[in-house]
Amino acid sequence: MKAIGAALVVAGAALLGHLAASERERRVRELDGLLYGLNLLETEVVFGLTMLPIALERAAQGGSGAGALFSTAARELRKGSGAAKAWVAGIRALERRSALKEGDMMPLLYLGGTIGLSSAQDQSRHLQLARRQIEARLEAERRRLPQVARLVRALGLCGGLAAALMLV
């Protein structure tokens, strides 16, 4: 009975470690998707001179993984909200279902003050700046990820073993 309990504790802790590591991996995928989405948005805005609601819808349909940001912002714009308000609503929608951290959202929040409301050249500068900041965070996370994921998984397992030993 004790052995079964200990095994369950070890498995549970290992699972928690695995989930924590997966969350870090998901953050990397989402940062990557966000970059792709911003890239699509920049193409529509700067080169296509597409009206913002349509540009956001196209970025949302691009399968970037950050679709919630763009689709919510587009929907809010269609409802008559201003660009800044619509963009912030998009960020909140993205936050609700993502592994991104608060710091990952900062470049997006800064973008909210300017999106749509300046020349194409200026839009390009702001979008590129946001992309560069996100890229930097993505690179840093990518570098750390293999070790951190291994560490978190190992910690989960070891924590589970330690707890099991104490229980036994």
Partner: peptide, 17 residues
Amino acid sequence: VDSVLDAITQSSVYALE
């Protein structure tokens, strides 16, 4: 003024420049 600009351009100043 900003709210009017936002509304009349559908937040797309760059497209109507």
